[in-house]
């Protein structure tokens, strides 16, 4: 069935991932699905599906998040996005942002959600750049990322943007509201 599936069948098969017995054994097949160029198939695995957060190792998890950016998918519907944030993913996403800036292309605002908890040093410089020259949405994302940073310098930087800082502080600004 997997070998001969048309697109809708593939979507249906992957939507069922959390229900199958021996979930760890089907990981290679999930890997195939994540390499697809068909966005609907990719999202059947990545979005609103608890399988990846429970069974993908960190490396494959990180590449799933990156792939979402490359196929134009949102990150917010990925289950476990915050819980499985990690230092390596934050580094790769910053490299990605630099590549996009060098190309004169926009950087998806959602990447800062995964960078925030590990933002220190150069990452703060990236967030400062977004706060100074980004769109409103991008600025909101950067402010939320700074608020999640463990670095005291992040708090200092955020205070330079008092409107955003207070919106984060009093809970008026949350990831769910950034569109």
């Amino acid at each position: 069935m997997c070998q001969t599936a048309e697109m809708a069948e593939a979507v249906a098969l992957y939507r069922g991932l959390p229900l199958y017995p021996e979930p760890a054994d089907i990981e290679p097949w999930v890997g195939e699905g994540l390499r697809t160029n068909m966005r609907s198939v990719f999202e059947a695995i990545a979005h609103e599906n608890p399988y990846p957060m429970h069974y993908l190792d960190t490396h494959r998890w990180n590449h799933m998040v990156l792939k979402a950016l490359f196929v134009g998918s949102r990150l917010a519907p990925i289950e476990g996005l915050d819980e499985r944030a990690n230092e390596e993913l934050a580094r790769i996403l910053r490299d990605f942002a630099h590549e996009r800036w060098a190309a004169g292309r926009p950087v998806p605002f959602e990447i800062w959600r995964c960078v925030g908890p590990f933002a220190r040093g150069g990452a703060l410089g990236d967030l400062e750049r977004v706060l100074e020259s980004g769109t409103t949405t991008e600025q909101q994302a950067a402010a939320l990322a700074l608020a999640a940073s463990p670095d005291v310098d992040a708090k200092v930087l955020l205070q330079r943007f008092p409107v955003l800082a207070s919106a984060v502080e009093n809970g008026m600004l949350e990831w769910a509201g950034v569109q």
Partner: peptide, 17 residues
């Protein structure tokens, strides 16, 4: 072994590394 050139595809994701 075959003394052939190599064409390397660099990854789209985590490209620099």
């Amino acid at each position: 072994e075959l003394a052939l050139p190599v064409m390397i595809h660099t990854p789209h994701r985590d490209k620099k590394n």
